[in-house]
Amino acid sequence: MAVRTAVVVGGGIAGLAAAVALDRRGWRVTVLERAPAFTDVGAGLSLWPNALHALDALGLGDAVAALGAVQTGGGVRSRGGRWLSRTRNAEVIRRFGWPLTVVHRADLVRTLADALPASALRSGCEVVKVRPDGVVAHGGRFFAADLVVGADGVRSVVRGTLPRHTGCTAWRAITPPLELDTPGAVLWGRGERIGFTALPGNRFYLFAAATAPATTAASAAAAGLRHRFAEWPDPIPRLLASVDDSDVLCHDVYDVPPLDSYVRGNAVLLGDAAHAMDPMLGQGACQALEDAVTLAVCLDGADLATALARYDRERRPRTQAVAHRAARLGAVARWRSPVATALRDLAAWSVPAGVTLRSMAPVLSWRPPRA
């Protein structure tokens, strides 16, 4: 039987995970990444149980988990610092099989890249066009493959349609080592939120978001972050003070309107290219890892058209539902009205922790499909 070939456009988490999944099923894979190297910028990443089940299916669950920090607890706090809801990781493990683990994005990207043959990785390749028949053009050259995997992010060339601005700007940073005795949390304010989670080595991943027009990111990196959140409750001021201006990443947040299909001819979308979403649920990378595993399983023992149709049936309703949920929760977290935010905080405080965790079961209980 002839070896099946795939070109993966995009060398981030989604693309590398798809490449690993296909490579381990005997596909000859080429990953085209426009950046000069296969790496990622310095930010943290929450891996919920569904993501770790996907990584486990790739044979990388334990290796990635060992690179991260298991969160002993966390939850949501008000602008004044009061706990509104708490999540205990022991209960997450009991219900869903893996703990909530936070890793550095670069560590995950490196682990995925190292799981592939060096010959499969081609950096500095900016794809300019993808045809439905599996021909990919970049830099005056052409690749032809049985399958094209579009994993090239929110501004995907493979998808070909523009994303939409969510009305939100986000900041991310990694702190130097700090001694903090408080669990990670997200604090909700009026039109803005900020949170932090632990990383290995006593570092912390700091993240924030606020309602703001597009292009805010161009001029609102470290200064915008400090201006908005310097007076928030402990330990936010201490975390902000520990971060160098050059280490603060800022970007306007975009999502992808619900697509009618993730498949066009021999090309298939996954990750942000298919369903970029509000970061509120911490599910963007998690869903991309699910996509990668599901795509490879669907391709086992099936002709390409049947396999891609199954992938679309399985992934599009689920990812669009998760994206919709993330958008709703992100909008609620950024409410500005004093009355609305007071009612929101009261509602969050009044819901038992077990009920909150059960409500996440449709997201976190995912397991890889059968071939």
Rank of each mutant, 00 (worst) to 15 (best):
P235T: 02
V127I: 07
P132H: 10
E192G: 06
A208D: 02
D252R: 01
A137K: 01
G150E: 12
A210T: 00
D255G: 03
F143L: 12
A170S: 15
D252G: 03
D244G: 13
V128E: 15
G195E: 06
H227C: 12
S242Y: 11
F204A: 02
R159Q: 08
V157R: 10
N266T: 07
R228T: 09
A208Y: 07
A218V: 05
L240N: 05
G189R: 05
R172P: 13
S242A: 08
L259W: 13
V130G: 10
D247H: 06
D245V: 12
V253T: 07
V186M: 13
G265W: 10
A208C: 03
P233Y: 02
H227G: 10
A208N: 05
R264C: 12
L259E: 08
S242H: 03
T175W: 01
G153K: 10
K129Y: 15
A137D: 15
L259G: 04
D152E: 09
P237G: 04
C250R: 03
V135W: 06
P257I: 04
T215K: 03
C250P: 00
T215D: 05
V248W: 02
H227F: 15
D245E: 11
G139W: 09
A223D: 13
V248R: 06
A241F: 15
V149W: 15
A145G: 04
V186F: 13
A267S: 11
G265C: 06
L206F: 06
G195P: 01
L249F: 07
Y262G: 03
V243H: 03
A218M: 08
N202T: 08
V127M: 06
T166D: 12
R238D: 13
E231H: 08
G150W: 12
V158K: 10
S246G: 08
A151D: 14
H165Y: 05
G167E: 14
V263C: 06
D247N: 07
A223N: 12
P176R: 00
N202C: 04
V256L: 01
P183M: 06
R226C: 14
P213S: 01
T169S: 11
T161L: 10
I194S: 00
R190H: 13
E231I: 08
N202S: 09
P233D: 02
P233V: 01
N266Y: 15
I194K: 01
R203A: 11
R203E: 15
T211C: 05
T211L: 12
G139N: 02
T182N: 10
L259T: 01
E192D: 02
L178A: 02
I174L: 13
T216L: 06
F207L: 04
S156E: 11
G184K: 03
V248S: 01
N266F: 13
S156Y: 14
P177D: 00
H251M: 05
D234N: 05
A222G: 07
C168S: 12
R264G: 06
R131C: 15
A170V: 14
A221P: 00
S242C: 05
T169Y: 15
S242F: 09
H251I: 01
H138L: 14
E231P: 03
L199F: 11
R164Y: 15
A137P: 14
A144S: 09
R141A: 15
A217R: 10
L240S: 04
